[in-house]
């Protein structure tokens, strides 16, 4: 039996990769992919925890996370297409309308 700490370490690595992508990549599509990576790291923690305490609620929670991820990908990619039509690029540095 593998200790849960190893699963948590793997999830941490995945989540930090996703964080780095969200913060430092300038391609909007890559930012969305990094968000998917972070959500998957959370899924891993939920499933590992569910196995540890013998409770299925963690696996149910993964379904809701997958639902939210699918919605987020659909709306996010629609926004990417709308922004590409308007600016002709998907670089995040063009999106400074809300910057203070």
């Amino acid at each position: 039996m593998i200790s849960i700490n190893h699963y948590l370490a793997l999830a941490t690595v995945m989540f930090l990769c996703g964080t780095l992508g969200v913060l430092f990549r300038r391609n909007l599509l890559l930012v969305l992919m990094s968000v998917e990576l972070m959500l998957n790291a959370v899924n891993l923690v939920f499933v590992a925890g569910s196995r540890l305490v013998n409770n299925l609620d963690g696996q149910i929670m993964v379904f809701f996370i997958v639902t939210v991820a699918a919605c987020e990908a659909g709306v996010g990619l629609a926004m990417v297409i709308a922004l590409y039509r308007r600016y002709g690029t998907v670089e995040t540095s063009f999106l400074r309308m809300l910057r203070g």
């Binding site: 699963y7 599509l29 969305l32 992919m33 998917e36 998957n40 899924n43 499933v47 590992a48 569910s50 196995r51 696996q59 993964v62 379904f63 997958v66 991820a69 699918a70 990908a73 659909g74 990619l77």
Partner: peptide, 23 residues
């Protein structure tokens, strides 16, 4: 390997099959 077989199937079907194809 964590005995979450249905979650594994959903992961392949929804994530790899639908979301990445959308990307």
């Amino acid at each position: 390997s964590l005995d979450a077989h249905f979650v594994a199937a959903i992961q392949v079907l929804v994530y790899a099959g639908a979301i990445v194809v959308l990307f």
